[in-house]
Design a protein around this nucleic acid. Structure first.
Lengths: 210, 210
DNA sequence: TTGGGAAGTCAACACGTGTTGGCATACGGT
DNA sequence: ACCGTATGCCAACACGTGTTGACTTCCCAA
């Protein structure tokens, strides 16, 4: 599942020579395919992003995609391989963690199409959804555990944070709701930060009756 | 676009007699198709939901779907035709609007698959996304305008509310993040209500520098 | 100079899709 | 009893998909 390479032992011992001629190096082609795949998956989602289109963007034959990544699923697995790259927020005062998280969210994702790509795919493709759940559990939930008072509550609180932040990603990057698209991050941050801050640090409220 | 019926003038003047035999009434079939379509679109999204599968669910031939709804797009248009059915909240004290909105959200959508259907489709299909934008503008934004102090700010504030509420819909109904799925609405409501309340009624915060 | 292997191309396959038109069947008014 | 018509089914179409295998071209090491 991780190693989907049928042939071509990576790295041919000699220097790649950064081909500018007719045949480029294997790694350059792989990278070109990956870049095209990320863009197409981001723009169209898993089903509508065709291997032919991706190959055309990478100026390569569709069969090369198969040779390098085995299958469309394998290509997606490679394209959606990503880190939230959550920074170390241990130096941030606890009452400003929400703001730090929200403003990091925008610096990380404005201009990067990987998140919408993942969201578009996960909405339709079961293995895409599973991937989101993994990222949530291993990355966000783990990071949140370091910011909350009681680590037991981390998944719970991380889910609430995800609901707000993925909601922003959905409305701003995927659905492109006009108001959400037009508001600049600097305006959005002070709106969103208190919500995230509360999910992070406020005491658990008492459930409503009935 | 709205009237996609090729033939069969709705309503045959006589009573339909609720056919239990071999041929059911036209309206019953239409309804069966629509119900199956909603479920399939909800479960699979626009692309993966095939007309053949929908027809099979409705125990009908695929060609009937075409006759009644013209095309797959037409079928989706009919299936995604929905009201948020936002209630009149004019009797609710202004400091409890957030809670009212959030608890209504759950009573409206728990057990109804139309929202995830729309979200799944809108993530991939441009006309699905357009539909969401319409619903946002004509229904949510309009309702929010009646709840805020300055109606000028309604789209702005409605977008923030949408980001939180659609984020919940996404994580709970579409991605099915385990913690989000497990938490009961009665616990979720007091978590989410303050955020929505703030988006609704709090003064506009000052943007962050830089 | 020559051979091996990697990089890339081409044409085709098997399949599933939306969509279409023709054909059978049962209903309801006369 | 009859016939028009609505209801439904069947077979097929044109097309786009992921995927495969054989073929050509180029580079690099003996």
């Amino acid at each position: 599942m991780t190693e989907g390479v049928p042939q071509g032992e990576r790295g041919s011992a000699a220097e790649p020579a950064a081909g500018g001629g007719r045949t480029r190096s294997s790694d350059a082609t792989r990278a070109a395919i990956l870049r095209a795949a990320r863009n197409r998956f981001a723009a169209d989602g898993y089903d509508r992003a065709t291997i032919r289109a991706i190959a055309a963007d990478a100026r390569i034959d569709p069969s090369m995609v198969m040779r390098y990544y085995g299958s469309k699923e394998g290509l997606f697995a490679a394209a959606a391989e990503f880190d939230l790259r959550l920074p170390d927020l241990s130096g941030v005062p606890t009452d400003r963690l929400g703001e730090a998280l929200v403003s990091y969210f925008f610096t990380r994702w404005e201009g990067d199409t990987t998140l919408p790509a993942l969201l578009r795919t996960a909405s339709t493709n079961p293995s895409g959804a599973e991937r989101v759940r993994q990222i949530f559990a291993t990355q966000l939930s783990a990071a949140v555990a370091r910011m909350v008072a009681d680590p037991t509550e981390a998944p719970h609180r991380a889910a609430l944070i995800a609901s707000q932040l993925l909601g922003v990603a959905l409305t701003r990057y995927v659905l492109r709701l006009p108001p959400m698209v037009d508001i600049p991050p600097t305006t959005l941050i002070p709106w969103l930060a208190p919500a995230v801050q509360r999910y992070l640090r406020d005491p658990v409220p008492t459930p409503t009756l009935g």
